Simulated assay, not measured.
Amino acid sequence: MLNAAPNDQTLVTIVVAPRERFEQATMSLEAVFETADLPFRMIYVDGGSPKAISDELKANVESRGHTFIRRPGYVTPNDARNTALPLVDTRYVVFIDNDVVFAPGWLSALVNCAEETGAGLVTPTILVGPAARMPDLKIHHAGGILKLTETGHGRDMYRRHGFEHESYLARKDELVREETDSTEFHVVLARREMLEDIGPFDPNLVGFTDEIDMAFKAKEKGWKIWFEPSSVVAYAVGKKLTWREIPYFCLRWNSAKCMSAERYFYKKWNLVPEFSRQHGFLRDHRRHAFPFKGLQKIVGWRITVTFTTLLCEAIALVTSIRFVKPDMSPKPIASAVTD
């Protein structure tokens, strides 16, 4: 790692937001410091993590001269990002979730791509799987297609991730820098000027379509999105959820909140309603909290999934008192300064 301490020539601020859990946050933070190869500023927004984890994160962030913001309860990712925006004063912002690991050179590759292409947004190669296996993992997102087709009933949205579910090591030589349509908030670089142009993130969106909303607004303003294959990161999954993070996980993927946000998003962009993907994701993803493999062998998949759903929704209902409602009039990014 090169000296990553910020200075007057620092081009990038890293903003960390919680995604769905906390136990991997320290590992992810250490991975940033170990692999970042450019000077950077960091704004770490922590929303409701267990005190022991929060204390460790705060010490690691502040001891390196960066900014740590502790929110009093659970927050949505967009709310966390909006909390950081007024403090950003660099040319670029890299938004990362708190459960990501990184290959060496990931940061400079994103910045170089933006510098050389003028991109408003740059997305890296995003893998998915256990952190210990990096980079021998499946591809989650390597650019992708995000198209709208006008119909008599609104606009039909088609979305597909590039090379999704394919082996990274088998396909990496086929990945090339190119313009693309979509990003993922696991890791994405945004040009500060673009963020000033599109305004704060929509606080009504809780995490299904927040990155699509950003892409649509960027394209409306004429900004380009580029895929940079040499920047490689991984959404680290595989470790079982612990009892300390299950409440946030269940609240984060609460059906009422998620689907209300989806209906709002589809109405906002005049999209043809189609929610089968979202319902399927909620059904399957919540099983990470309660796999119940033994129960499934006895009563079958359908009953197990129903029980898991009811259990997670009950936990979300009880946990909702810890939810910090987003600021519906968030402050914009800091006023322009000379880079």
Rank of each mutant, 00 (worst) to 15 (best):
Ala59Leu: 13
Met42Asn: 03
Asp55His: 11
Leu29His: 09
Ser28Ala: 15
Phe22Gly: 08
Glu30Met: 09
Ser49Gln: 12
Ile14Glu: 00
Leu38Ala: 04
Thr26Lys: 11
Asp55Arg: 14
Lys58Ile: 02
Lys58Pro: 06
Ala36Asp: 00
Gly47Gln: 02
Thr10Trp: 00
Val32Ile: 15
Lys58Cys: 11
Thr26Arg: 10
Gly48Lys: 10
Glu34Lys: 12
Ala36Gln: 01
Val45Thr: 08
Phe22Trp: 13
Thr10His: 00
Ile43Cys: 12
Ser49Ala: 15
Tyr44Arg: 08
Pro18Ala: 08
Asn7Trp: 01
Ala52Gln: 14
Thr10Cys: 08
Pro6Gly: 02
Pro50His: 08
Val16Phe: 10
Thr10Asp: 00
Leu38Arg: 14
Ala4Trp: 13
Val12Ile: 03
Glu20Lys: 14
Phe33Pro: 02
Arg41Thr: 05
Pro18Asn: 15
Met42Asp: 01
Gly48Cys: 08
Thr10Arg: 01
Arg21Val: 01
Leu57Glu: 06
Ala5Pro: 04
Asp46Ser: 15
Glu34Tyr: 06
Phe33Cys: 03
Glu23Asn: 13
Ser28Trp: 13
Phe33Thr: 02
Arg21Ala: 13
Gly47Lys: 04
Thr13Ile: 01
Leu11Glu: 07
Gly48Asp: 10
Pro39Asn: 01
Glu30Ala: 10
Gly48Pro: 07
Leu11Pro: 03
Asn60Leu: 15
Phe33Trp: 12
Glu56Phe: 09
Arg19Lys: 14
Phe40Ala: 07
Glu56Cys: 12
Pro50Glu: 11
Ala59His: 11
Leu29Arg: 06
Ser54Ile: 06
Ile14Ala: 05
Val15His: 03
Ala31Phe: 00
Pro6Lys: 03
Pro39Phe: 00
Glu23Met: 14
Glu30Gln: 14
Val45Tyr: 06
Ser49His: 10
Gln24Asn: 11
Leu29Trp: 03
Leu57Gln: 10
Glu20Ala: 15
Ser49Asp: 09
Ala5Tyr: 03
Val16Thr: 14
Lys58Arg: 15
Ser28Val: 06
Gln9His: 12
Glu56Met: 11
Gly48Met: 04
Gln24Phe: 11
Met27Tyr: 10
Gln24Tyr: 11
Ala4Glu: 04
Lys51Pro: 10
Ala59Phe: 11
Val32Leu: 14
Met42Ile: 01
Ala4Tyr: 13
Ala25Asn: 07
Thr10Gln: 00
Phe22Val: 13
Ala52Gly: 10
Gly48Leu: 07
Asp37Lys: 00
Glu23Val: 10
Asn60Gly: 09
Leu57Tyr: 05
Ala36Glu: 00
Ala52Phe: 06
Leu57Trp: 04
Thr13Val: 02
Val16Tyr: 11
Val16Ala: 12
Arg41Gln: 12
